[in-house]
């Protein structure tokens, strides 16, 4: 078997920082841009292509880029590994909670028009309701993809 250079440096059990300064600096510079684009995609998902799923994948991609470039241990402050699965559960709870809150207010499941906010007309209620749903979807997708990456590194 031919011995190739590794795509990125992997220590015995965890991913270490990359040996190339170009990769380290590029990942540090690119990750905030990807996060801004992810938030833009998430907030403009009502009117333009995008939404919670795509925004969540972009946010997860920025964190995975940091993990690959700067190493596993150095990026625990960005997104701790122990938080990924609980955050995914919180996202699912936000989704379910928004749906059953509408049921409690006397409507159908995920029926945003019956939310008890009389200062908002129904179109705004629908807009904010779908925003809550997208928050849940974004949290779940982002933290689940990062959790998949972390557990892959665990081997």
């Amino acid at each position: 078997m031919i011995e190739h250079a590794r795509p990125f440096d992997l220590a015995a059990d965890r991913c270490g920082p990359s040996s190339s300064p170009i990769i380290r600096i590029a990942s540090r510079g690119l990750a905030p841009l990807i996060q801004i684009i992810g938030l833009y995609v998430f907030f403009h998902g009502h009117y333009s292509p995008g939404g919670g799923f795509q925004g969540g994948v972009l946010l997860a991609a920025s964190i995975i880029l940091l993990r690959m470039g700067l190493g596993f241990a150095n990026t625990q402050t960005v997104m701790p590994s122990g938080w990924t699965v609980p955050l995914g559960a919180v996202g699912g709870l936000i989704y379910i909670g928004t749906g059953f809150f509408a049921v409690l207010c006397g409507g159908n499941f995920l029926d945003y028009g019956v939310f008890p906010m009389p200062w908002l007309d129904p179109p705004h209620l629908h807009s904010y309701g779908i925003l809550f749903i997208e928050v849940g979807v974004t949290l779940t997708v982002m933290s689940t993809l990062v959790a998949i990456f972390d557990h892959l590194l665990d081997g």
Binding site: R6, P7, L10, A61, F149, L153, G155
Partner: peptide, 9 residues
């Protein structure tokens, strides 16, 4: 990315 991580492992 996941494919490349699997190759690295």
């Amino acid at each position: 990315v996941f494919n490349i991580v699997a190759i690295t492992l």
